[in-house]
Protein backbone atom coordinates (compact mmCIF):
# COMPACT_ATOMS: atom_id res chain seq x y z
CA UNK A 1 0.00 0.00 0.00
CA UNK A 2 2.67 2.51 1.00
CA UNK A 3 4.72 1.40 -2.02
CA UNK A 4 1.79 2.01 -4.36
CA UNK A 5 1.28 5.44 -2.83
CA UNK A 6 4.95 6.40 -3.22
CA UNK A 7 4.93 5.25 -6.84
CA UNK A 8 1.75 7.23 -7.49
CA UNK A 9 3.43 10.27 -5.92
CA UNK A 10 6.24 9.89 -8.46
CA UNK A 11 3.61 9.91 -11.22
CA UNK A 12 2.07 13.07 -9.76
CA UNK A 13 5.47 14.78 -9.62
CA UNK A 14 5.77 14.17 -13.35
CA UNK A 15 2.25 15.49 -13.91
CA UNK A 16 3.11 18.62 -11.88
CA UNK A 17 6.09 19.23 -14.14
CA UNK A 18 4.00 18.89 -17.29
CA UNK A 19 1.33 21.26 -15.97
CA UNK A 20 3.46 24.06 -14.55
CA UNK A 21 6.81 24.18 -16.37
CA UNK A 22 7.31 26.49 -19.34
CA UNK A 23 10.58 25.08 -20.61
CA UNK A 24 10.05 22.50 -23.36
CA UNK A 25 12.96 20.33 -22.14
CA UNK A 26 11.52 20.18 -18.63
CA UNK A 27 8.19 19.03 -20.10
CA UNK A 28 9.93 16.20 -21.99
CA UNK A 29 11.76 15.14 -18.80
CA UNK A 30 8.46 15.17 -16.87
CA UNK A 31 6.88 12.92 -19.50
CA UNK A 32 9.67 10.40 -19.11
CA UNK A 33 9.30 10.52 -15.30
CA UNK A 34 5.61 9.66 -15.70
CA UNK A 35 6.63 6.75 -17.90
CA UNK A 36 9.03 5.41 -15.26
CA UNK A 37 6.35 5.62 -12.57
CA UNK A 38 3.79 3.76 -14.69
CA UNK A 39 6.17 0.92 -15.53
CA UNK A 40 7.28 0.56 -11.92
CA UNK A 41 3.66 0.51 -10.66
CA UNK A 42 2.80 -2.34 -13.04
CA UNK A 43 5.80 -4.37 -11.89
CA UNK A 44 4.93 -3.69 -8.22
CA UNK A 45 1.54 -5.32 -8.85
CA UNK A 46 3.30 -8.41 -10.18
CA UNK A 47 5.55 -9.22 -7.21
CA UNK A 48 4.79 -12.29 -5.13
CA UNK A 49 6.34 -12.85 -1.71
CA UNK A 50 9.17 -15.36 -1.55
CA UNK A 51 9.30 -16.13 -5.26
CA UNK A 52 11.97 -15.94 -7.95
CA UNK A 53 12.28 -14.63 -11.50
CA UNK A 54 10.27 -16.55 -14.15
CA UNK A 55 13.10 -18.42 -15.86
CA UNK A 56 13.18 -22.21 -15.78
CA UNK A 57 16.55 -23.82 -15.09
CA UNK A 58 17.65 -27.37 -15.61
CA UNK A 59 18.23 -29.35 -12.44
CA UNK A 60 16.54 -26.83 -10.14
CA UNK A 61 13.20 -27.85 -8.72
CA UNK A 62 10.39 -25.40 -9.47
CA UNK A 63 9.86 -22.67 -6.94
CA UNK A 64 6.98 -20.18 -6.92
CA UNK A 65 7.62 -17.50 -9.54
CA UNK A 66 6.52 -13.89 -9.91
CA UNK A 67 3.79 -12.92 -12.37
CA UNK A 68 5.41 -12.91 -15.85
CA UNK A 69 2.56 -11.16 -17.70
CA UNK A 70 3.17 -7.53 -16.57
CA UNK A 71 6.90 -8.04 -17.12
CA UNK A 72 6.27 -9.05 -20.74
CA UNK A 73 4.03 -6.05 -21.38
CA UNK A 74 6.32 -3.54 -19.65
CA UNK A 75 9.33 -4.82 -21.62
CA UNK A 76 7.88 -3.53 -24.88
CA UNK A 77 6.51 -0.42 -23.18
CA UNK A 78 10.03 0.65 -22.16
CA UNK A 79 11.27 0.35 -25.72
CA UNK A 80 8.33 2.37 -27.04
CA UNK A 81 9.11 5.08 -24.49
CA UNK A 82 12.54 5.46 -26.08
CA UNK A 83 10.91 5.97 -29.49
CA UNK A 84 8.43 8.55 -28.24
CA UNK A 85 11.18 10.39 -26.35
CA UNK A 86 13.19 10.57 -29.57
CA UNK A 87 10.13 11.94 -31.40
CA UNK A 88 9.55 14.60 -28.71
CA UNK A 89 13.22 15.62 -28.82
CA UNK A 90 13.08 15.93 -32.61
CA UNK A 91 9.97 18.15 -32.41
CA UNK A 92 11.59 20.32 -29.73
CA UNK A 93 14.73 20.72 -31.86
CA UNK A 94 12.66 21.87 -34.86
CA UNK A 95 10.75 24.34 -32.68
CA UNK A 96 14.05 25.72 -31.40
CA UNK A 97 15.38 26.15 -34.95
CA UNK A 98 12.28 28.13 -35.87
CA UNK A 99 11.67 30.26 -32.77
CA UNK A 100 15.13 30.36 -31.08
CA UNK A 101 13.58 29.60 -27.70
CA UNK A 102 12.32 26.66 -25.64
CA UNK A 103 9.77 28.76 -23.74
CA UNK A 104 6.31 27.52 -24.71
CA UNK A 105 4.62 30.84 -23.94
CA UNK A 106 6.70 32.49 -26.66
CA UNK A 107 5.88 29.84 -29.24
CA UNK A 108 2.57 31.15 -30.48
CA UNK A 109 2.56 31.44 -34.25
CA UNK A 110 1.40 28.24 -35.88
CA UNK A 111 2.34 28.85 -39.53
CA UNK A 112 5.12 26.47 -40.50
Amino acid sequence: MILYLLCFTLLLVGLYGILTKRDLIKIILSASIMGYATNLLLILFAYRNGSIFPILRKGVETMPMVDPLPQALVLTSIVIELGTTALLVALALKLFQKYKTYDITKIRKLSG
Binding site: N39, L40, I43, L44, A46, Y47, S51, I52, F53, P54, I55, V66, Q71, V74, L75, I78, V79
Partner: peptide
Amino acid sequence: FIFLQAPDLAIV
Protein backbone atom coordinates in the same frame (compact mmCIF):
# COMPACT_ATOMS: atom_id res chain seq x y z
CA PHE B 1 13.37 -4.12 -11.12
CA ILE B 2 16.23 -6.25 -9.82
CA PHE B 3 14.64 -6.27 -6.33
CA LEU B 4 11.28 -7.20 -7.87
CA GLN B 5 12.78 -10.26 -9.63
CA ALA B 6 12.66 -8.91 -13.19
CA PRO B 7 16.21 -9.22 -14.58
CA ASP B 8 15.22 -8.76 -18.25
CA LEU B 9 13.49 -5.51 -17.44
CA ALA B 10 16.46 -4.28 -15.42
CA ILE B 11 18.79 -4.76 -18.39
CA VAL B 12 16.38 -3.11 -20.84
